[in-house]
Design a protein around this nucleic acid. Sequence first.
DNA 1: TCGGACGATATTGTAGGACAATACTGACTA
DNA 2: TAGTCAGTATTGTCCTACAATATCGTCCGA
Lengths: 228, 228
Amino acid sequence: MIVTKPDHQNGRRLSAVEQVVNALFHGLINNRFSPGQRLIESDLTAEFGVSRGTLRDAFRQLAADGLVELVPNRGAIVRRLSATDMTELFQIRTELEGLAARLAASRMHDPEIRRTFEAAIEPIWSDEPRLHITRYIDENTRFHEAILEASGNRHLAIVSRQFQLPVIMGQVGGLLTPDTIDNSISEHRALSEAIIAQDPEAAERIMKQHLARARDLTLTPTSTHTAI
Amino acid sequence: MIVTKPDHQNGRRLSAVEQVVNALFHGLINNRFSPGQRLIESDLTAEFGVSRGTLRDAFRQLAADGLVELVPNRGAIVRRLSATDMTELFQIRTELEGLAARLAASRMHDPEIRRTFEAAIEPIWSDEPRLHITRYIDENTRFHEAILEASGNRHLAIVSRQFQLPVIMGQVGGLLTPDTIDNSISEHRALSEAIIAQDPEAAERIMKQHLARARDLTLTPTSTHTAI
DNA sequence: TCGGACGATATTGTAGGACAATACTGACTA
DNA sequence: TAGTCAGTATTGTCCTACAATATCGTCCGA
């Protein structure tokens, strides 16, 4: 395939499928493709210089992460999330990440785990204003992933991706203002403190509140949110 | 492809991929393939009479349901679940189905929904002894699916599949005795009553207890359970 | 005997072409 | 205007071929 950047990670060269998944992923996050849009195989095989089989593999992977939808005889379609979908996804995510926060807190007695966790979430303590929204989205994603990691339940981390990614696609479209970011940061800090203080109940409660607020934000009709 | 049985469902003819998925699925459930076993593409394409591309599509679908694992350059491997895996999966499943039970109970005021639910779970009230284990596994699966359905959260029903199927594979290996089946049935009944009585908290609590017991059963070292 | 290097074989990864099945589009007709 | 129908676009499936990688047995030296 046509490799524009030296696409590799920790030694192993990425397979063609993985590279295509990455490229499409970024296209989806950056709104290059818009919700409901069909992803035409012949266009994309030409663009990436891969075979149809490879591309279709990539589609399946993106479908598993909830970013596209595979419709028989119509191919891959960029997922469009209705308000109902959003509500449902947040309901699930709240349970999963609530569990993660609880588990993480209950494992902080292990100094090794605590050190790893503290290192991973360190950026949240910075007082610098978050000027770049995409950068903050990144910080946010890493924070939530750190908790999932600290939960010690590997399957939990994997399945949660399915419920984070589609929402991220929506967030890029706006609705993150300096205000809401500040709010989010202080919630992250409170949550971290509860986890480090080994208080599972508080951690779970704060996480659930945090996600409830995020959900309300996402569903607010005033946002420029275009329902992806 | 070679069609042995008239493989079709509700009018629409099943695609080749779907038929292969079905065939492999039954092979996995019935222990024709054992945990850790590699599924060799050339063997299976010959057996099913489909192309490698079709077979690989089927592998991806099974991987999404958690029945096989895709390892780079080694292909599809029948998933082997360790005790740790089992614990992790049950932890997640407990949260998801706990949520489902709670939501289902809170929607029983709608007569349409309640009628559908009651019809779906009707078999649990039968006093006939459950002689065929596979039949009971089926009844059990339907019961849990009825609750997921009644929850009204479609995504919840979909994601929960990922955490039910691998465990079902394990259950077939034994560990379901008349005793445990009786116990399970009475728990199902209590759970149903809580849901129909529109008591979300009780429903959630009973569901979580029910799954905790199932987990203990699965993890008991005395079982002939071969850790898939 | 043991363990490592090496080559042969098996298997998967990817490309590309072909055709059938299905969906989509626009012109034509009643 | 609405419905029909043919032409086109697109996806579903199969096939073949070769490259990349893993696996396994054999040989050699310590």
